[in-house]
């Protein structure tokens, strides 16, 4: 009978043997080596990782259909260029030449297969003039000029209901902007800003009537809500103004612009307006500068942030 110590010694040395013999294979697999029978040597290989949207698509590598479907990983590929084709019934196929480098992973994880006949769903229940989507609340706003109403639904077109009267402006509005408190909607064209209330006041039997602010002589470029949902920041061809969203409120000129069609961005979170304008420098040249106005403080600061990138000759 074999002694216990001999069995133990055998197991110990077997373990040592497995470790020493297995380690090179495990390490070579880890770093991507494969035995190439044609060259009769170990060659460092690469990997292709494929993910598609939707999944379960067939994959052809150099015109050979692979057994597995997406998502899949093709291991131990010798460094070379491969023709990859992905097919899924009722979807456009996807094809590309992919270069596999030794020891590297080629990740194709953003493949979208587009349907041959995409499913189109009608969302509006009434006639539609234009629409506005509030992504933060997952709501769609529909404007129906025929019955002068604004409707809303969720993003699937469900819960479709009238939420406010719409006041027609001509030409039709170019932009819609929902107030930060989601209570009011403004829309504007080149010369008019219309504001509709989306909720009923507690102390009022009927909804607040929509109203129009006219800017006959000026071309409106953009209108923003201040974070208080009560003030408007109005960008016209030559001015930046602030005013209360009421018909009897005067507008305050914040900036007289030297150029038309300034680039403007208003950050509602900080009530900061960024805009570009021309300025003539001491060298006689006119530079396009980026400015910002902080509208959340009592004293509005006008700061020159960045020197111009676009040098223009004085006209």
């Amino acid at each position: 009978m074999i002694s216990e110590q001999k069995i133990r010694a055998f197991l110990f040395y077997l373990g040592v043997f497995i470790f020493l013999a297995g380690l090179p294979f495990i390490l070579s697999f880890a770093v991507g080596y494969k035995f190439d029978p044609h060259k009769f040597k170990f060659t460092k290989t690469g990997i292709i990782v494929i993910k598609t949207q939707p999944a379960n698509a067939s994959v052809y590598l150099n015109n050979a259909l692979l057994r597995d479907k997406t998502p899949l990983t093709i291991n131990e590929l010798l460094p070379a260029k491969y023709n990859l084709k992905i097919e899924l019934d009722k979807y456009y196929s996807w094809a590309r030449e992919v270069e596999v480098e030794k020891g590297k992973v080629s990740r194709l994880e953003k493949i979208i297969l587009f349907p041959l006949r995409p499913h189109i769903k009608q969302l509006n229940k009434e006639r539609l003039s234009s629409f506005w989507i509030d992504a933060t609340d997952n709501n769609i706003y529909y404007v129906n000029q025929d019955d002068s109403s604004i409707y809303t639904s969720n993003l699937e077109g469900e819960n479709y209901k009238q939420v406010a009267p719409f006041i027609a402006i001509t030409p039709p509005p170019v932009k819609f902007r929902l107030s930060p408190d989601k209570q009011k909607l403004l829309y504007f064209n080149k010369h008019q800003v219309a504001i509709s209330s989306l909720t009923r006041r507690r102390d009022a039997a009927s909804q607040e009537e929509p109203f129009i602010l006219n800017y006959p002589g000026e071309g409106l470029a953009d209108v923003f809500w201040h974070s208080d949902s009560y003030h408007l920041i109005i960008i016209s061809d030559r001015k930046i103004q602030a005013r209360e969203a009421r018909t009897d409120s005067p507008a305050v000129d914040l900036v007289n612009l030297s150029r038309k069609n300034s680039d403007v961005f208003f950050d509602t979170d900080t009530d900061t307006l960024y805009f570009t304008d021309y300025q003539q420098a001491g060298d006689g040249n006119i530079y396009n500068n980026l400015y910002k106005i902080e509208l959340n403080t009592k004293t509005f600061l006008l700061q020159n942030l960045i020197g111009t990138k676009d040098k223009e000759d004085e006209q």
């Binding site: 697999f29 290989t45 020891g103 992973v105 990740r107």
Partner: peptide, 13 residues
């Protein structure tokens, strides 16, 4: 590790 074979193989091993 997203770009190299060992990054893919390490979790598998």
């Amino acid at each position: 590790f997203n770009q190299v074979s060992i990054g893919y193989n390490l979790p598998k091993i």
